[in-house]
Amino acid sequence: MDTMQVSTMCHHRPVTAYKTSIGMKLLMGITGFIFIGFVTGHMIGNLQVFLGAEKLNAYAHTLQSLGALLWVIRLSLLTFFAVHIFFAIKLYFQNRASRPVKYVKEVNVESTFSSRIMIWSGLAMFSFVVYHLMHFTLIITNPEYAVLKENLDVYSMMIVGFSNYWISAVYMVAMIFLALHVNHAVFSVFQTFGLTNAKWIPLLRRIGNIYALIILAGYLSMPVGVLLNIITLH
């Protein structure tokens, strides 16, 4: 008692919220929630590929015509992404340090597989986002898309891209990681913000499972649609 610092209620100077464990979790939650929204919107937008080239390319034009606003959105997303990753890594190392000696016999009772691999599915998503931006946005990995990109022919870019087995495989594996990440994220966001009770905890876990499956099915349908010639160039 005498060697450790004790902060009592009466003489307490609160630690800045974002430096506390719950504060950091709240930041993870709020940025994560934004990405659940982004991932959903991005999926719905791109699913227009099934409606034909005109629809999808018109959607791409609408996004591009946002001009300055598009950049505000892009930079905000990048900032949220950086915050989410920064605190994820910080929390990961703090958590590891909290148990310096591991158990000889380690078992899992309630924790789900997806909850235990959040840091790894997250890092997989990070690597994927870097590749995805180099592939379709910055046109670094496949310079041959440059002409299509100039004409904003997103439809052809997607089909040419996914016609390559390797590229399709990378996207599909990444989407499995995304689904695993989302699976735990949905429940976690609500729990972190205190928006749960005994009744909603199991329900939100199930909603998380279903939501992850919807995200997985939606995103996988695109490369699969291209590979099965359901969506074609002409």
């Binding site: 340090a97 148990r99 009772v109 909850s115 976690s188």
Partner: peptide, 11 residues
């Protein structure tokens, strides 16, 4: 005290 952070494992 050096406790870890909650990741909602439910363990």
């Amino acid at each position: 005290e050096g406790f870890g952070n909650c990741t909602n494992f439910q363990e």
